[in-house]
Design a protein around this nucleic acid. Structure first.
Lengths: 132, 132
DNA sequence: CGGAATCCTATCGGATACTG
DNA sequence: CAGTATCCGATAGGATTCCG
């Protein structure tokens, strides 16, 4: 008989469905789906700015994050749009105006971002570098 | 007078404190703190396995994630240990046994991981690729 | 057993310059 | 205004081999 793959003891609240019991980082795992949605430098800041629901032009978005280069801003926006988290509308007229706005789907990330914030505050509170 | 930096409209539930109002991805921002804690390929899987609280030897951990190379496993463990999220104890004896175990601090990540899972399921549910 | 050391490639993200 | 194009250095992570 062959060796059994060693399986952890499952925390069923943490891993309630089978797709979380993977032994590799696969996009089938819900956790990886979420991570993919918020991954990339600057992504969470862009989402933070869009989440209140206001439409932003490209330039406004760039002005709200002055250190963010055009290249990366464009990349992030394309990723978010193609993931259906942000929508892009081009209003005809001159000068051209593009408007970026969070989608319903994008709003699903809000609780996650709140939790990221909350957890970060908790970790900062007791800093992990106290002596015994 | 100079130009004003363009500031977004704040979602005060999402960004309750000043440290979240940064315009660059700084480690001062709580969101970045959380992201740093769970960042890196395989990290969430290692945490998932440790979160039930069982101690794992290096080899058991490796066996629970067979595709994970020694190099990356070691890297991840060092990061987690140095962040105070996991503790490492060496039991004297032969053969040598090292035991990795989640810390109290590490348990603070549990709600975040649950939320990552929850959000991922939600995103998968309505897939973002439906036609109108 | 529990790693460390090397090597190698791919992708990421920053800087800069240019365009319809 | 709203991006694109190009270059480039740094890191991440996988494969493999070695060590106390």
């Amino acid at each position: 008989m062959a060796h059994q793959a060693v399986s952890p003891r499952w925390d069923v609240e943490l891993v309630p469905t089978l797709s979380g019991r993977t032994d590799v980082p696969s996009i089938d795992c819900p956790v990886e789906v979420s991570l993919a949605a918020i991954s990339g430098r600057w992504t969470t800041l862009v989402l933070r700015n869009l989440l209140p629901g206001d439409g932003y032009s490209y330039t406004e978005l760039a002005a709200s994050l002055p250190q963010l280069s055009d290249k990366v801003l464009t990349e992030r926006l394309r990723e978010l749009v193609s993931a259906g988290l942000v929508e892009r509308q081009i209003a005809s007229g001159f000068p051209r105006r593009t408007e970026y706005r969070i989608t319903e789907r994008g709003r699903e990330l809000r609780p996650l971002l709140i939790e990221l914030y909350r957890t970060g505050l908790a970790l900062k509170a007791h800093d992990g570098t106290e002596d015994e």
